[in-house]
Simulated scan of single mutants.
Amino acid sequence: MDHPKIAIRNLYKLFGSNPEAMIPYVKSGMGKAELLKEHAHVIGLQDINIDMRRGDITVIMGLSGSGKSTLIRHLNGLIKPTTGDILLDGTNVARYAGASLRELRRFRMSMVFQNFALMPHMRVHENVELAQRVRGDDEGDARKNALEWIERLGLKGFERHYPHQLSGGMQQRVGIARALASNSDVMLMDEAFSALDPLIRTDMQNLLLDLQKDLEKTIVFITHDLDESLKIADHLIILKDGVVVQQGEPQDIVLNPADIYVRKFVNDINRGRVLRAESVMVPGIIEGAGTSGAVDADDNLETVIARSDGDVGKAFVVTRDGIPAGVIRMQDVFKALVPRRFDQEQTSDNSPAIITQRQEHAS
């Protein structure tokens, strides 16, 4: 069994003068407003249970105040939990302090910030070398490694520029190069592209995905943008008021929102551009399906519709790496374009089609 790179178990974060004493109230069902009114404490995170697979991009999204930045800052010890565990390769790092915490930040986790967080008095190559220099790497090795990442991130020729001489997109490339140059296991990205213009933001998303194909880093990415989440996420987590309301594969969440809150997120997206053929196909090869050719499992539904010329009677074989994986019928494609009606009375906790907010706890 492939164990998760990061496992968060029963994590609570309360803010106030005596947060540990408030945990029983929260566990017994006291809500955020009631806890604030009666005990002057704030619920930041409540009973978080998440598995983050190695080599995946895990995206945590939610509106402002949902707890997403609070959660990511628990991973590298910038915030300590009130109670709960954070397991990195099976080791609980939630209570790390002193030398062990410094080692975690220097060697195991790097971070890319929304506001770039570059040193204004340092040139590009010095910023990229910074993490390596701080932990005592050989100066020559640090410079060589930094220059390799500078070139790979499209910054060759700007090595001796200062941050203020670069555009926002280029500054963020420097931030990503610095994180990658540290060669850490895990890269944390807190609203990393939110300050960028839309076109530059799209370029940075594409750059991240291209790099990830080769690097297979474990990336935790925070955003409030659903389109960005659906584009880059292998595993998507949606937070509301410090609680995970739904998590799973992005395609499943779009097709099966767990509640009205999630449905509001996904209703206005272009489903044809987001959903892939693999999510709508009937798995396995169906004899006599009358297919009209083949489409790739990763083709979006807009591509499939274009292939069909809008003919609802057509069907296509869906291939993955050139191997047939199923059949997609155009009538199912057009049905998938219509947001599912949410009927709370028909939603079952035991329904395999729906990823509920009830998460698996460590056994």
Rank of each mutant, 00 (worst) to 15 (best):
M1S: 03
D2V: 10
K5H: 06
I6D: 00
I8W: 02
R9Y: 14
Y12F: 14
Y12K: 11
F15H: 09
F15M: 09
F15Y: 11
S17F: 07
S17H: 13
S17Y: 12
E20I: 01
A21P: 06
A21D: 14
I23V: 12
M30Y: 03
G31M: 03
E34W: 02
L35W: 03
L35H: 09
K37P: 09
H41M: 08
G44M: 14
Q46I: 06
Q46G: 08
I48A: 13
D51N: 08
D51T: 09
M52G: 03
R53D: 15
R54D: 15
D56Q: 15
D56S: 15
I57H: 01
G62E: 14
S64K: 04
G67T: 01
S69W: 10
G77W: 02
L78H: 14
K80W: 00
T83S: 07
D85T: 07
L88Q: 00
G90I: 05
N92C: 11
G98R: 00
E103C: 04
E103K: 06
L104V: 02
R108A: 10
N115V: 02
F116Q: 05
F116W: 07
L118Y: 01
L118K: 01
M119L: 11
P120Q: 05
H125E: 08
D138N: 15
D141T: 13
A146R: 10
W149V: 11
I150E: 14
H164V: 12
G168S: 05
Q172V: 09
V174C: 11
A177L: 09
A181C: 04
N183H: 13
V186S: 03
V186D: 09
L188S: 08
A192R: 12
F193D: 06
S194C: 06
A195R: 10
D197M: 08
P198N: 03
P198E: 04
I200S: 04
N206V: 07
L207C: 07
L209D: 04
L211C: 05
K217L: 12
I237Y: 02
I238E: 08
V243H: 10
V243L: 13
G248N: 07
V254K: 09
V254D: 03
N256G: 07
I260Q: 15
V262E: 09
V266E: 00
R271D: 01
G272I: 05
S279C: 01
E287S: 11
G288K: 13
G293P: 12
V312G: 05
K314S: 13
G322T: 00
P324I: 06
M330S: 00
A336T: 13
A336D: 08
R341G: 04
E345G: 00
E345N: 02
T347K: 15
T347H: 15
N350K: 15
R358H: 14
R358E: 15
Q359N: 05
